[in-house]
Computed example of a mutant assay.
Amino acid sequence: MTTSNSQDNKGDYSYHLPVLLQETLDGLAIRPQGVYVDLTFGGGGHSRGILERLGPKGKLFAFDQDSDARRNLPDDSRITFLPHNFRHVGRFLRLHETVAVDGILADLGVSSHQFDEGHRGFSYRFEGDMDMRMDQRQTLTAYEVVNTWSEQQLHKLFEQYGEVTNARTLARTIVQMRGTMSLRTIANFKTALNSVVKGNPNKYFAQVFQALRIEVNDELGALKEMLQQVPGLLSIGGRVAIITFHSLEDRLVKNFFKKGSFEDEDPSDPFGQSTAPPLLKAITKKPVISGETELRQNPRSRSAKLRIAERI
């Protein structure tokens, strides 16, 4: 979808306050006549920032699999909205006859809007169904995961994606409780787990819900597929900026920017002789994090980490 010609880039940030906005825009080193891709349009904050730095002939492609995001499109002919998961970025850019771009941005955080819409099931703070689908067109929901997966699968899920300390006990309890009560709603799910909550309940359920959301939306699989396409999509000197919100994502981005792969050092190949040289050069040696001012304005930015790399 391409919008009309006027360039009203003022946005309502109530949907989602853009994290590390200036740091991201500066890191992309935006060329006024360039072509850019915002892989996680959301509330449109980062996209509006890019448009402000683009000239009349610049172009921006905005991806978002959440249909709610379309409502935040600015009235600007330079932006094209693509309602798809960013794992398909290469295919849809080719469909729009775009071979190389000058910059790619992805903010991997769940938007404030999604957290605050109780019926979407992303937050343990609100009542609603155990849903958690970013893309409402898909069939897998959090309810299906907790209601049908085996104890072993659930244990691995909560241990790896949520870093839940008692993941084994949690998995066993879910399997036991789903035989006696419905886990379809958030309230029922939390009630079923009351006896196994360790430490701060808010932190505990945040970890549990994070693990389920990552699995339901295949977030790490999509991130890997997207990153593998980035070097081939960027023009020489083009940049990619990725904002992550937990260690699993950050490790994948860090390793890919450094080595062009997702694995830590291979002990059988300490000098990396069996791998092709990476096509990206990390611009940020350490991740960029929010300053005190942003942390006061937006506490959710506390866990954000920005990494930037350049196509060589």
Rank of each mutant, 00 (worst) to 15 (best):
A69W: 14
R48M: 08
S67P: 00
D76S: 13
T139N: 15
T24M: 04
A276D: 15
T40C: 15
A167F: 06
I243T: 03
E294V: 02
A29E: 14
P56M: 02
L233F: 02
R251A: 13
L73D: 15
S195C: 01
V288I: 03
E292M: 07
L252M: 05
S303M: 02
I50T: 03
M181F: 14
L25V: 02
E127M: 11
G238C: 10
G232W: 14
G27I: 11
G45K: 04
F189K: 04
G232V: 11
E159S: 09
T2F: 01
D218Y: 05
K203S: 07
Y204K: 00
L279Q: 13
A29S: 12
E265T: 15
D269S: 11
K281R: 12
R213Y: 05
V145P: 02
P287E: 06
Q65M: 08
S77M: 12
A211H: 07
S112C: 08
A211W: 07
Q22T: 09
D250F: 12
D135T: 03
V99T: 15
I236M: 15
Q22H: 15
L220D: 01
M134Q: 05
N194S: 02
V288W: 09
L105W: 08
R31H: 06
L20P: 01
N217Q: 07
K59L: 12
A29C: 09
G162N: 08
L220S: 03
M181K: 10
Q176S: 06
Y204S: 01
L157A: 03
E159C: 09
S301D: 05
E117R: 13
Q152D: 12
A171S: 04
F205G: 05
I243M: 03
N188I: 00
G291Y: 00
R178L: 06
F262V: 00
F257L: 06
P83R: 08
S150F: 03
Y15P: 11
G34H: 14
S268H: 04
S112K: 02
I214P: 02
G272Q: 09
R300H: 04
T3L: 13
L25D: 01
R91G: 13
A192W: 05
F86P: 09
L220P: 04
G128F: 00
D266K: 05
G162C: 01
S123R: 01
N217P: 04
R70H: 08
R31W: 03
D26M: 15
D131M: 06
S6E: 15
I243D: 06
